[in-house]
Amino acid sequence: MKLEFAISGGDFSRAGIASSEVKKMLKKINVEPKIIKRVVVALYEAEVNVCAHAYKGNIFVEIDGTKIKIDIIDKGPGIENIDEAMKEGYSTASDAVREMGFGAGMGLSNMKKNADEMSLESKVDEGTKVTIINYLK
């Protein structure tokens, strides 16, 4: 099963729509609630990061019988120092982003905690690709 979503940077009102759809889909195929929560928390953080830090992006979801793999690919400023960005509390979020309820610097570590596997690739001035994989059983 495959799903695809587009995200536009800055558009916070729509952030979470992809995560919501994925949540519905996983419920429909009877995945355990605890696993669903892990997947959608990680995805939601990724979705918000594109809104908050990049210009636009796409989400590609692939579900097979044993796992869900999600790629979140954006065009944006990229991340210069990934190790630093992964640290709890590190954030470059603007005041506008903070007013929307984000900028604690917890998103990437939340993703890492909730994904069974996570990888992050980024090129400065080009964009960022996050991949999260969760096993469904």
Binding site: F12, A15, K37, V41, R98, A104, G105, M106, G107, N110
Partner: peptide
């Protein structure tokens, strides 16, 4: 700050916030 909230893994939790948006 919503990422602070998203860290939590407790059932039947009340979220108290001044953030009123989607």
């Amino acid at each position: 700050l919503m990422s602070d909230v998203l860290r939590i893994d407790t059932d039947n939790l009340i979220l108290l916030t001044g953030l009123s948006n989607m």
